[in-house]
């Protein structure tokens, strides 16, 4: 029991530290950059590229419990949500609610797909 607590504490602190290192290094780099430099634009597009890649991965090749749900359901719900977002004049609420609603409904009513 004691061993398990220590493992979990180390795991938690390790996970927090591993994430915070990126933030701290970011703060140090940021002091050397001005908003009008090309490096600043580059770092901004690098962020966008990583976020684009991350979202694609979370949908198509997820880590964690979403693996249980088929790729078809994930893609269909994602595409529907995104389509609703654009069709409603870029409103976030309908996009997210309809996408997530479809995702849940498909699991209930069509568990085979």
């Amino acid at each position: 029991m004691m061993d398990r607590s220590i493992t979990l504490i180390l795991l938690t602190l390790g996970g927090i530290g591993a994430t915070y290192v990126w933030r701290a290094v970011g703060v140090i780099f940021a002091t050397k950059i001005t908003t009008d430099s090309p490096v600043f634009l580059w770092v901004t597009v690098v962020s966008y590229a990583m976020l684009g890649g991350l979202i694609a991965r979370m949908i198509v090749m997820p880590i964690g419990p979403l693996v249980e749900v088929s790729l078809t359901v994930r893609l269909l719900s994602f595409a529907t949500g995104l389509a609703c977002f654009f069709l409603t004049g870029k409103r976030i609420f309908p996009g997210v609610i309809i996408g997530v609603g479809l995702f849940i409904a498909l699991q209930y009513f069509y568990p085979q797909i």
Partner: peptide
Amino acid sequence: ANARFLPMVVSFMP
């Protein structure tokens, strides 16, 4: 998995 925070912080703090 969280490496994105580096460019995000660099592009945000300034």
